[in-house]
């Protein structure tokens, strides 16, 4: 499978280990990444708050660049960030809804010969895993099942709400995919109340205390339910849950020590990659020092791939 790949800003800024691990995991899944390095920030919802037309135009530009790759043989556009998925999806909903509005927005793109045509398929890596690759296919590639690893899913608001815009329904229960992937990789899902709540990042610079408490509540709940780590498809959640975790711990008065994995990192681990190679040493809460990988992740090479 070949995808027009939008890595996002944060995965190349403060969470380089996300972009890095995605690039390393992709070949093992036979996903060819064609990077959209001329595309632009999705605006993270904030540019839409500032000016709807500006956000819609910037994203239409990204979509048009993706469509050029699709014309050249890519199957779809892929992102690795819940916030990109949601923010781009919101703009796409408006662009797809009205030919008149789309034409107005496209006017800004014509000088460079770009044009967005209705109906782009843009999926987060999580959706690609389940809907394009398929869980059976994923299971076949598992080399080191995450046996005994208790993982709490953390989706990020933008990829679970609103359900109609995100196409979450009986046919595509996208709000259960993280759990399905964890299980497919041999891990144990930890059921806790925070899985679809907010990490607090959007208000981290406006209402810092509320933001830190939000993150703290979710991390604390996961710890109470016995999670070894969380996994998230959203780098912005990762910033609040991992990078800020020392501040979070201080704010709520509880030493959390809860590692947070990026989705491609978790997949990479199960596919047999080395934790360091996946950038796990780059986290603020080092999963390498908190989780005993020799007991949590049983290194039974080929256990599932033989099945």
């Amino acid at each position: 499978m070949k995808v027009a790949y939008w890595p996002g800003c944060v995965s190349r800024g403060f969470t380089p280990e996300l972009h890095g691990s995605m690039a390393k995991v992709a070949p093992l899944l036979d996903i060819e990444l064609v990077e959209l390095n001329r595309a632009n920030c999705c605006g993270a919802g904030v540019i839409a708050e500032h000016s709807q037309e500006l956000a819609d135009t910037l994203n239409a530009r990204t979509f048009a660049l993706a469509q050029k790759e699709i014309e050249q043989g890519a199957d779809l556009m892929m992102n690795i960030c819940s916030t990109c998925q949601g923010a781009q999806g919101e703009c796409q909903e408006r662009l797809d809804a009205s030919a008149e509005y789309r034409a107005e927005v496209n006017k800004h793109l014509t000088p460079e010969g770009l044009e967005y045509a209705k109906g782009l398929v843009n999926k987060n890596f999580l959706w690609v895993l389940v809907e394009e690759l398929g869980l059976d296919e994923l299971a076949k590639r598992v080399k080191r099942p995450l046996t005994d690893l208790k993982v709490g899913p953390f989706y990020g608001c933008y990829i679970v709400r609103p359900t109609d815009r995100l196409g979450i329904d009986d046919e595509n229960p996208r709000d259960t995919y993280l759990e399905q992937v964890i299980e497919t990789l041999g891990g144990t899902v930890v059921d806790y109340s925070g899985a679809q709540k907010c990490c607090g990042f959007p208000i981290s610079l406006m209402q810092k205390e509320t933001s830190m408490r939000m993150a703290g509540q979710n991390l604390g709940e996961a710890k109470d339910q016995g999670a070894d780590c969380l996994v998230t498809p959203c780098p912005l959640c990762h910033l609040n849950l991992d990078m800020q975790q020392p501040v979070v711990s201080k704010t709520i008065g509880r030493d959390l020590q809860m590692p947070v994995l990026h989705l491609p990192q978790m997949v990479g681990l199960a596919l047999g990659m080395d934790p360091k190679e996946l950038g796990l040493g780059k986290h603020v809460v080092k999963p390498t020092s908190v989780i005993d990988w020799t007991t949590s992740v049983v290194g039974s090479v080929g256990a599932l791939s033989a099945a």
Partner: peptide, 27 residues
């Protein structure tokens, strides 16, 4: 005084200048 307007403009201006977010300048 809640940094609301400044936060909005910081993101808007970062994308104008770089095309992407510059987190180091956000704070």
């Amino acid at each position: 005084r809640n940094n609301g307007e400044r936060h909005e403009m910081a993101i808007v201006n970062s994308v104008k200048k770089y095309g992407t977010l510059n987190e180091a300048k956000m704070v």
